[in-house]
Design a protein around this nucleic acid. Structure first.
Lengths: 159, 159
DNA sequence: GTTCAATACGTGTATATACACGTATTGGGC
DNA sequence: GCCCAATACGTGTATATACACGTATTGAAC
């Protein structure tokens, strides 16, 4: 039951979902952890963040994030501190979390380098930029008047 | 906690996951069903297929597919027939399934048209082709000798 | 025909995802 | 101060995802 060539899909969303399943599988083999968990560790390794801010940046549902963060907290990898606003939870890595991230980072970098080489540096960069555009375009409120997404002239900051 | 601009992510896999969450959310609002379920109905609307073949085409884990197909079968939308090989299950739409697909298709086409307009036809087409390439590249066996993905010169068939 | 590795599929379990709904805090209008 | 809509977060429930493991069938080697 071998599929010789991979057909294109008419649905952009189905194309995205398929590519994500395929690539996520590749990364998770290399990382020995799940991509969502690594993504959170990596992000919090850059800077501590309030929960709602993480949800927006990664476009993760608020309630999904609650459980994944709770799980990382149970593992002792992250810790929450209340902000001035007592409703907020500001998350940061614990020292165990930093150690775990340090162990995973080289594996992630290898996976990135391998797949980047496989695709070619040019396509890789274009792809990341385009995926950021697509994520932003899908979040666009339909009632904005213009139903046309305009990519930024200056590249957005990279995290 | 509003994020003014969406930053790029260093991780290609995280970029893919974020874009997929964002776009899937958009489509599911429009479809009033889940994207995986619609994708299966759409595919089986084109042609009946054996389970393992579906798994490969959509790069869905075999065991995930078992449950989603079972759910659609419980709803009476699809039906399995055994092949000559008694291990195989060949799936096709029931008449209820064809009706359901007919109801959903216009909504899907509207969602596609809207988002395609938003992105622009050119970027849309390039994106679907690239996502197909990426899915194929990630499936490439590392031991193929060449660790370099070559896109096909002739576009693959579209389903 | 018998044996056995490969193939097609299912089940138990765990995380990821997201909707509906609920609680606590904040800040502005009065 | 009081009221109340908005905000930040959690819980119950359902589907999606995928690994480890198990069963049935096939086909080829002998």
């Amino acid at each position: 039951m071998q599929v010789e060539i991979l057909p294109q899909l008419a649905c952009l969303c189905a194309s995205l979902n398929r590519a994500t399943r395929s690539v996520t599988h590749l990364y998770e083999r290399a990382l020995e952890t799940s991509v969502p968990r690594f993504t959170l560790l990596y992000l919090l390794g850059q800077q501590s963040m309030v929960q709602a801010q993480i949800a927006e940046l990664l476009t993760i549902d608020r309630t999904t994030l609650t459980r994944t963060l709770a799980s990382l907290e149970r593992q002792g990898l992250i810790r929450a501190a209340p902000g001035k606003d007592k409703r907020e939870r500001r998350w940061s890595l614990t020292s165990d979390g930093r150690k775990a991230l340090a162990r995973i980072l080289p594996k992630w970098e290898k996976a990135q380098a391998r797949f980047r080489k496989r695709l070619g540096a040019e396509r890789w960069e274009v792809l990341i930029a385009e995926l950021t555009n697509v994520a932003a375009a899908a979040r666009m409120r339909a009632t904005d008047g213009v139903d046309r997404f305009r990519p930024r002239k200056t590249a957005p900051p990279r995290l």
